[in-house]
Design a binder for these strands. Structure first.
Lengths: 152, 152
DNA sequence: ATCCGTGCAAACCCTTTGCACCGGA
DNA sequence: TCCGGTGCAAAGGGTTTGCACGGAT
């Protein structure tokens, strides 16, 4: 964990940015909640527990900065708020989402199923893929059970 | 085209809604620009040409209504505005997007490459897929050419 | 007379920005 | 003394909502 902070510190410094206490607190929150997809507000509230004097604007600025440096990935599930995901190892950033339209939960699929498609895109469409996003909307496990129980 | 309006009219009426002049004008704009992914503002401006007295709120309400009835699909490319797509035939709604991060253009792929994946999801994750979205971010054909010319 | 649908403007929410201030090089 | 980074509050942009009006049933 400390090593990952160091890595990020170096990424910042290599571009002329500092790992300020506020930025470090923000990064730590992201590291500690790596499984979630936190919104800026989520991050803000969690950071406030450690560093109560921090401002929301700083969190936004930090997330924006980390996003530009590709330390985090900005996600958008269409619910009106941006969410932020640490890009761990390069292998981790290719994942997909199952979004339940009933209960709103979101599950991740860590496999990357799109490698072959990206090749096909390069060949057929001359499109150089930098990133992709694959989200499925549907009804999750639990909501299906609930439905069938309530139904009859 | 008239037949498609009729179909939509029936979809509305079956749920107790009317195809008002404003709604019809909105639907016609969507039909006439089926290839594009119009934002609410886009639709508003185009509808205004035909029905200058219409209000933006009505357009939003109409698009929301059509979205609930699955006449249109609300899309979100992460650029901060919702976009709306007519769901033509069932075959048409499964498509993917190539979004160029340099020039912002968006190209559609009409193939549906995800059929097998959806089956796999149902089996492995017990997730009932209603819809999906697959967007690729990258550099398009033309921007690649520009880059290589400018580069050296 | 009721009620859905509308236009307008205000409210809303998330996000960005202007500005004065601080603290390290 | 710079200058990047910060907190605060205000502004911004897209979207939603409250409200009174109008038109169809």
């Amino acid at each position: 964990m400390e090593s990952r902070i160091d890595t990020i510190k170096q990424q910042l410094q290599s571009q002329g940015y500092k790992l300020t206490p506020q930025r470090e607190a923000t990064v730590r929150v992201l590291l500690e909640n790596e499984e979630d997809h936190l919104s800026a507000e989520d991050v803000f509230m969690l950071v406030k527990e450690k560093a109560p004097e921090i401002g929301l604007a700083t969190v936004y600025r930090t997330l924006e900065l980390l996003s530009e440096l590709h330390v985090v990935q900005k996600l958008n599930f269409g619910d009106g708020v941006a969410r932020y995901d640490l890009r761990g190892d390069s292998s981790k950033h290719h994942h997909h989402h199952l979004i339940c339209v009933q209960c709103g939960t979101m599950q991740e699929i860590l496999d990357d199923w799109l490698g072959p498609l990206e090749e096909r895109l390069a060949q057929e469409y001359n499109f150089h893929v930098l990133d992709h996003r694959l989200d499925f909307q549907g009804i999750c496990n639990k909501c299906q059970e609930k439905e069938s129980k309530q139904g009859q």
